[in-house]
Nucleic acid binder design. Structure first.
Length: 198
DNA sequence: GTCGAGATTATCT
DNA sequence: GATAATCTCGACC
């Protein structure tokens, strides 16, 4: 049973509680080890900063749903929508560890050499779980997708969000949560200033 | 093993 | 036409 009332809390409170949670999609189950909180209008790094649109409409919807979006063409990222209806807020799933369905995950992520690389990273996590755009807006308590919150809150650490470049310096907000000691958590990587083509 | 640059497509202005 | 919350691959120590 999914506690929707708890998911209606702000993303900052929901994010640490998702650490250690189990997310099952079909036959693959992962344990979330790294997340990132994103708010709406007050967060320059959020997609909902400029207001609702086609892509982020799910973020303004009811909590307990899955929000997927495309980034850089090939990659898909998954978020857990929280906050009440009408408030844009979501928790980005950055890293996880595959605990069940390793065989299926390995086939999907054939390029990964170690099992810890299977779901290390937002896009990899979606590939390992088989999440695509059609899963956007899916209920997290449905048959295909199910989120299981941990009974006890796990130990976590916070830090600045990486890879978030933008005017106003959104790195002020230490809304990145991870479980220390987990090999599937990517270490701190400075924001790579991507060069645009010629 | 670590670092640095390129690639690629849906969505929005 | 510009942007984006990234990943993969190649080169070098």
């Amino acid at each position: 049973m999914l506690d929707r009332d708890f998911l209606a809390s702000p993303a900052i409170e929901v994010a640490p509680a998702l650490l250690g949670a189990l997310l099952r999609v079909d036959e693959v189950t992962v344990r979330i080890t790294e997340v990132e909180a994103y708010l709406g209008e007050t967060d320059p790094g959020s997609h909902a900063y400029r207001g609702p649109g086609r892509r982020n409409a799910v973020m303004f919807g009811p909590p307990g749903h899955l929000y997927t979006y495309f980034t850089y063409g090939m990659h898909v990222c998954a978020n857990v929508v929280c906050s009440p209806l009408g408030v844009a807020s979501a928790v980005l799933l950055r890293g996880a560890e595959v605990v069940e369905g390793l065989d299926v995950a390995r086939v999907r992520r054939a390029t990964s050499r170690s099992d810890e690389d299977l779901a290390r990273g937002p896009a990899r996590l979606c590939v390992a779980l088989g999440i695509s755009l059609v899963d956007g807006g899916a209920d997290l308590d449905g048959n295909r997708v199910r989120l299981i919150l941990p009974t006890h809150s796990a130990a976590f650490e916070t830090g600045p969000r990486t890879g978030v470049s933008g005017p106003g310096g959104s790195s002020e907000y230490p809304w990145r949560f991870w479980m220390p000691g987990e090999p599937s958590v990517s270490p701190y990587r400075p924001a790579t200033a991507r060069k645009r083509g010629p």
